[in-house]
Amino acid sequence: MNTTIARLALAALLGRKRFILLLLFPVALIGLSVLVRVLTSDAEVALGILFGLGLLVILPLLALVSATAVMGPEVDDGSLVYLLAKPVSRHSVAFSKYVVALAAVLLLGPLPMLVTGFAIGSGDQDLVLAGSVSATLGAIAYTSLFLALSTVWKHAVVVGLLFVLLWEGTLAAIFSGVAWLSIGQWAARIGATIDADWADDAVPLWWAVGALFVVGIGGVWFSGDRLRSFSLKGDD
């Protein structure tokens, strides 16, 4: 962990308009859940919106924006060399950026979900807890995966979107086997240990834990490794 790198990453994340985009996610999610709660006066439906929409769409997108914002632009235009031409381990560079991105995701995703969940729920604390734990675990893995993506591909954002919306969103609904390779499903499976109603057990618990662990650690490690081979490409 390098505080200077983290500070620069934070500046990149909070820079002007970007933060507004990040802020839009929790605001929209909370707004919608509260609205539904008020209109239907049914806590279960409102929680369904909060965690359904939150885990399937908001959380992965939040992670995608944060992870690519701290890494993508600098990889893209090569100005990462200023951070890398230093006696600092490149794994530590990747890890510092990861910590900042993850902190932003946790702050704007699982935390508001937890608070809103308790505010609009009707005493079903286990469900809120299960959802928030799933969201936290999902955030750890998604951020790591998207950080790794943004060190590899210029179009990391679009690839990430395809993964989230097509693979985890659409295909997972059609083919149940996708659950074996779905961060959202793993996270939900672990959350289900708190409240069995929270999710079905499409994958065994050991697999969910192991896979989340591998993606969470592996993504950051892989990013660091990519930075170790970071090459400066000239125009000639």
């Binding site: 970007r18 985009l21 996610f25 769409v57 997108l61 995608l64 924006v65 690519t68 954002v157 979107l161």
Partner: peptide, 16 residues
């Protein structure tokens, strides 16, 4: 103007 933000913003507006 940043490509990534434009893409996610559009997805937010259209799909989410």
């Amino acid at each position: 103007l940043r490509r990534g933000f434009a893409v996610v913003g559009s997805i937010l507006a259209v799909l989410v």
